[in-house]
Design a protein around this nucleic acid. Structure first.
Length: 841
DNA sequence: CTAGGGTTAG
C-alpha cells in the first residue's frame, strides 16, 4: 500500500500546484434551452475572467460597449463565474451602466453565491434607495445571502418587505424563507412558514427536512420525510434523499437508514455521487462497515466525495492507517485531494504522530491555498502540538486571523497531550470563549493526570458558576473520576444527575457508569444499568463481567461471558481478561483453563501477557504453583514483572518461601522500583518466622532508596470523604476510634496476626502498629459514625493486610454490618464473618 | 430564482 507520505513525494503530477478553481454555482439538473443568440453563445464559451475581458474588448471594437442588452449579459455571465475577480469586473461594468433590475439581481446572486453576503445585502439596500423595487427574483437571492451569513435581522426585514410588497404567496419566495429561517436556527419560524404554505413543492419539503437535519433534529427530519411520502403527491429527488440520508447518519440508527436506502433502490430516484457518499457515511456512522465497504467498492475509489466520507469516518474512529489507505488509493487514480481530504489526512498524521507526513501535508495545503481556511489551520495546529512541535503550532496560531473556540480548544488539548496540565489550565482560564468541549478537555485532562477531586471541582464550578450544561462526554470523565475515588454517594448523585438532565445514556456512557458503580462496590446498580442498555457491545458485556467478578460472583460472570458469545458478539482481548479474572477470583480452575485454551483455538484471539498473568493467579490460588511456573516458562514472550508478581502473591498465600524468593528475584531485576514485591516477600518470610530474611529484604530496600508507600484508606460518611494514613492519629475523633479498636480486640476476641508486621520489634509494639493500620482506623471510624445496619465502604491504596482482613470479618459478624473493602487489587465484600474473596487475594 | 453529504477540538 502506498503511504500518503510516499505519494506526496513521488507523484509530482498529482501534486502539481493548481490555480485556484473558480467557484462555480452548482449545475442545474435541467437542461437549459439553447439559444441562437450569437452574444449568448460566445459568452457561454467564456470560462475565465480573462476570456470575459477579451470579449468586452471585442464588444468595444464593434461599438457595442454601450449596448445595454450586451453589457447586461456580460455582467450576468461574469457573476455566474463567481470568482472574486469576475465579480469585481462585473461590478465595474455595473457601476458604469444604468443598473437595471435584472443587473442588480445578477450581482446580488453572484455576491451571495460566492459568500460575499454583506455586499449582496448592501446592494439590495442601494437598489431600494435608488427606487428600483425588488422582484420575485431579488428576494430569494437576498434571503440566500442572509441564510449564508446567518444575519437574522436583515432576513426578518426582508420577510417584512415580502409581506408588504405582496410576494408572500410566491412559492419560490416562501421556499427561500423556510431555508433562511432554518439555516439561522429559527426552526419554529421556518416550520410556521412551511405549515402556512398553501402548496409545497419538493424544494419546500427538502429545505425543511434539511433544516432539521443540520440543526441536530435528525428524528424530526426523518419523520418529516416519511410524512412527505405519505401525504403529498410530491416525490423526493436526489437532493431530498441526500438530506434524509444524512439525517439517518446523525441518528446512528441502522434500521431507519436501511429503510431509506431500500426506498432509494425501489423508487428510481437517480443515484448520484453525492448520494453514494451520503449512504457510505451513514453506514459507517451506524457501524455497518461491510455495507459501506461494499458500496465503496461498487462505486469505485475515483469519487472524491466518497473517499472523503470513508477517510473522515476512519479517522473519527482512530483508524488512521485505513484512512490514509483510502486517500492514497484515490490519489493513485489521479484524483487530487481537496480541503476536506486534507482535513482527514492531517488528522491521520496527528494520530500517528508522524510529523514528517504532517509537514508534507502542510506543504500541499500551502501550494493549494487551503491555509486560508480556519479548519485546516486548526487541524495543523493539532497535528504539530500532538507531534510535540509547539513552536510550529504557535507560528500558525499567531498568523490566524479568525481564531475560534476550536482553535483554543486545540491548544488546550495539545498541552494535555504533552502532560502539561498547568499550561492547559492557564490557557483554559484566559481563552476568550468556552464551550462544552473546552470544559470536557480540561476535565478529561485532570482525570488523565489522576487529579480526580480537582476534576469534580471543575465540573461543579462549570455548572454553578458558568451555567454550562454537561453532556455525555463530561459525564464519562466524571464517572471515571468517581470510580477511582470509590465514592458511592457521589456515584449515585452522578447517576441521578444524568437522569435529571436527560443526558442520553448510550452504550459508552452506560459502560462508564457500570464501571463506576463496580468500583464503588455497588454491582447491583451496575447490572441494572446493563439490563437497561439497548445496544450492548463487547465493552458493555465486559463491564458487566467485571462487575460480577469484582463482587465475587464468578459463576454469574462466566455465564455472562457465554451469553455474550451466544448472542454472536466476537470476544476481544479485554473481555478475556474479565472472564479469566472472574475465574481466578472465584477459584474456577477448570473453567478458567478451558476459556484460556479457547482463546486462540476457537476465537482467534492471541493470549497476551495479561492473560498469562490471570492464569498464573488462577493456578496459584488453587495451590498449583508448579503448574503456574511451567506456564510462565512456556510463554512465547519473556514474562514481565506483573506475571512474576502474580506468582509471588500466590506464594504468599500458599506459604511457599523458596518460590517466593525466586519470583521476587525476577521482579527485582525486571522492575527494581516496584516496592510491592519487597513487601510481599518480607510478608512471606515474616509468616514463616524467618526474621533474618525479613531484615535482609528491608535492608536491601533501604540501600536502593525504596520506601514502602504509606497505607491510606478512604471512607465516605454522609458525602464527606475522610482519609486515614497508617499510624496517623490526627483525626479529631481519635479518642473514640481508639476506644472502638480496643473494644473489638478485647471484647470480640480478635487475636492480632503478628506475622503481618514486617518489623522485628517486640510483641507489644507489633500489636500497636497493627492497630493503627489505615483500614482499621477507617473501619473503626465507620462503625462509630454511620448508622446501624448500613454498609461500610473503604477504599485502600495498597493490598489489604491479613490481620485487617480478619478484623473486618469479625466486625461484620459481631456488629451485623456489611463491609466493602476495595484494595488496589480487588473487592472484598464482607458480611457475617465471611469474605467474597474466600481469604485469597 | 429556491433545497444538498463529508468539516477541526473532548
Amino acid at each position: 500500500m502506498a503511504t500518503l507520505g510516499s505519494v506526496l513525494y513521488l507523484s509530482p503530477m498529482v501534486f502539481a500546484t493548481s490555480t485556484s478553481r473558480p467557484f462555480l454555482p452548482r449545475q442545474s439538473h435541467r437542461n437549459k434551452p439553447t439559444t441562437n443568440n450569437p452574444i449568448n453563445n460566445s459568452l457561454k464559451k467564456c470560462t475565465t475572467i480573462h476570456e470575459l475581458k477579451l470579449f468586452h474588448h471585442s464588444l468595444a471594437k464593434q461599438g457595442l460597449d454601450n449596448d445595454v442588452s450586451a453589457i447586461t449579459k456580460l455582467v450576468a455571465r461574469s457573476c455566474e463565474l463567481g470568482t472574486r475577480e469576475s465579480l469585481t469586473f462585473a461590478r465595474k461594468l455595473f457601476d458604469f451602466s444604468c443598473g437595471s433590475r435584472f443587473m442588480h439581481n445578477s450581482l446580488i446572486r453572484g455576491y451571495a453565491s460566492s459568500g460575499l453576503c454583506e455586499e449582496a445585502l448592501l446592494l439590495f439596500l442601494r437598489m431600494m434607495i435608488d427606487g428600483i423595487s425588488p422582484d420575485k427574483y431579488t428576494f430569494p437571492f437576498g434571503l440566500s445571502a442572509c441564510a449564508k451569513s446567518r444575519t437574522i435581522r436583515d432576513g426578518v426585514q426582508i420577510h417584512g418587505l415580502v409581506v408588504k410588497m405582496d410576494y408572500a404567496k410566491d412559492l419560490f419566495v416562501q421556499n427561500s424563507l423556510v431555508h433562511f429561517y432554518a439555516e439561522c436556527g429559527e426552526l419554529i419560524c421556518a416550520r410556521k412558514v412551511f405549515d402556512e404554505m398553501p402548496q409545497r413543492n419538493v424544494v419546500s419539503w427538502t429545505s425543511m427536512i434539511c433544516g432539521y437535519a443540520r440543526r441536530g433534529f435528525a428524528k424530526e427530519a426523518v419523520d418529516l420525510f416519511f410524512e412527505m411520502m405519505r401525504s403529498e403527491d410530491v416525490r423526493p429527488n436526489s437532493v431530498t434523499m441526500v438530506c434524509v440520508i444524512s439525517a439517518c447518519a446523525k441518528l446512528e440508527d441502522l434500521g431507519t437508514g436501511e429503510k431509506v436506502h431500500a426506498f432509494v433502490s425501489s423508487s428510481g430516484v437517480e443515484v448520484n455521487d453525492l448520494m453514494v457518499s451520503a449512504l457510505v457515511d451513514m453506514y459507517m456512522k451506524c457501524n455497518d462497515n461491510d455495507t459501506a465497504k461494499q458500496l465503496f467498492e461498487q462505486y469505485g475509489a475515483r469519487n472524491l466525495d466518497l473517499c472523503n466520507a470513508m477517510a473522515s469516518n476512519y479517522v473519527r474512529r482512530g483508524l488512521a492507517k485505513e484512512a490514509l489507505g483510502v486517500l492514497s488509493l484515490m490519489m493513485d487514480y489521479g484524483v487530487r485531494p481537496d480541503r476536506i481530504s486534507m482535513l482527514s489526512a492531517i488528522a491521520c498524521c496527528s494520530q500517528l504522530k508522524n510529523v514528517l507526513w504532517g509537514k508534507s501535508c502542510h506543504g500541499y495545503v500551502l501550494r493549494n491555498g487551503f491555509e486560508s481556511w480556519d479548519n485546516i489551520c486548526n487541524a495543523l495546529i493539532d497535528m504539530y502540538m500532538k507531534c510535540g512541535k509547539q513552536e510550529t503550532a504557535f507560528k500558525i496560531f499567531d498568523r490566524m486571523l479568525n481564531k475560534t473556540v476550536v482553535t483554543w480548544n486545540t491548544i488546550v488539548a495539545g498541552y494535555i497531550e504533552n502532560g502539561d496540565v498547568d499550561a492547559a489550565w492557564e490557557t483554559f482560564k484566559t481563552m476568550p470563549e468556552k464551550n462544552i468541549v473546552s470544559w470536557n478537555t480540561i476535565i478529561g485532562g485532570l482525570v488523565q493526570e489522576s487529579m480526580f477531586e480537582e476534576a469534580i471541582e471543575v465540573f461543579r464550578s462549570m455548572q454553578s458558576q458558568e451555567g454550562v450544561d454537561a453532556d455525555g462526554v463530561t459525564m464519562m470523565s466524571i464517572a471515571s473520576a468517581c470510580g477511582h475515588l470509590g465514592a458511592l454517594d457521589l456515584a449515585k448523585w452522578i447517576y441521578y444527575y444524568i437522569e435529571k438532565n436527560r443526558i442520553q445514556l448510550d452504550v459508552r456512557l452506560g459502560t462508564s457508569l457500570m464501571d463506576m458503580f463496580s468500583r464503588c462496590g455497588d454491582p447491583e446498580t451496575a447490572m441494572s444499568i446493563f439490563d437497561g442498555l439497548a445496544n450492548r457491545d463487547v465493552s458493555a458485556w465486559t463491564a458487566a463481567i467485571r462487575a460480577m467478578a469484582m463482587s465475587g460472583n464468578a459463576e454469574r460472570a462466566i455465564e455472562l461471558f457465554h451469553e455474550m458469545i451466544e448472542q454472536g458478539l466476537k470476544p476481544d482481548g479485554v473481555v478475556f481478561v474479565g472472564a479469566l479474572t472472574a475465574c481466578s477470583h472465584g477459584g474456577l480452575v477448570q473453567q478458567g483453563k478451558e476459556i484460556f485454551e479457547s482463546m486462540k483455538k476457537v476465537h482467534g484471539v492471541c493470549p497476551e501477557e495479561v492473560h498469562y498473568g490471570c492464569m498464573v493467579d488462577l493456578l496459584g490460588r488453587a495451590g498449583l504453583l508448579e503448574e503456574a511456573l511451567q506456564l510462565i516458562n512456556s510463554m512465547p514472550k519473556e514474562p514481565n514483572d506483573v506475571i512474576w508478581n502474580s506468582l509471588l502473591a500466590a506464594c504468599r498465600v500458599q506459604g511457599d518461601v523458596e518460590m517466593a524468593a525466586y519470583a521476587a528475584g525476577k521482579i527485582q531485576v525486571l522492575a527494581p522500583e516496584r516496592t510491592g514485591s519487597y513487601v510481599l516477600l518480607s510478608n512471606v518470610y515474616a509468616s514463616a518466622g524467618r526474621w533474618n530474611d525479613v531484615a535482609k529484604v528491608r535492608l536491601s530496600m533501604k540501600e536502593k532508596g525504596l520506601r514502602k508507600p504509606p497505607g491510606t484508606s478512604l471512607i465516605e460518611i454522609r458525602g464527606k470523604t475522610h482519609e486515614f494514613t497508617s499510624g496517623d492519629e490526627s483525626h479529631p475523633e481519635m479518642p473514640k476510634i481508639e476506644a472502638m479498636l480496643d473494644e473489638v480486640s478485647r471484647e470480640l476476641g480478635h487475636v492480632p496476626d503478628l506475622s503481618s508486621v514486617l518489623m522485628d520489634v517486640d510483641e507489644q509494639e507489633k500489636r500497636f502498629m497493627l492497630s493503627r493500620h489505615s483500614e482499621k482506623l477507617a473501619m473503626a471510624f465507620g462503625l462509630i459514625s454511620s448508622n446501624k445496619g448500613t454498609r461500610i465502604r473503604i477504599v485502600k491504596n495498597l493490598r489489604v493486610c491479613s490481620d485487617c482482613h480478619t478484623f473486618a470479618k469479625l466486625a461484620s459478624k459481631v456488629y451485623n454490618r456489611e463491609i466493602v473493602l476495595r484494595d488496589n487489587n480487588r473487592f472484598h465484600f464482607i458480611s457475617q464473618g465471611k469474605c467474597s474473596c474466600n481469604d485469597f487475594w
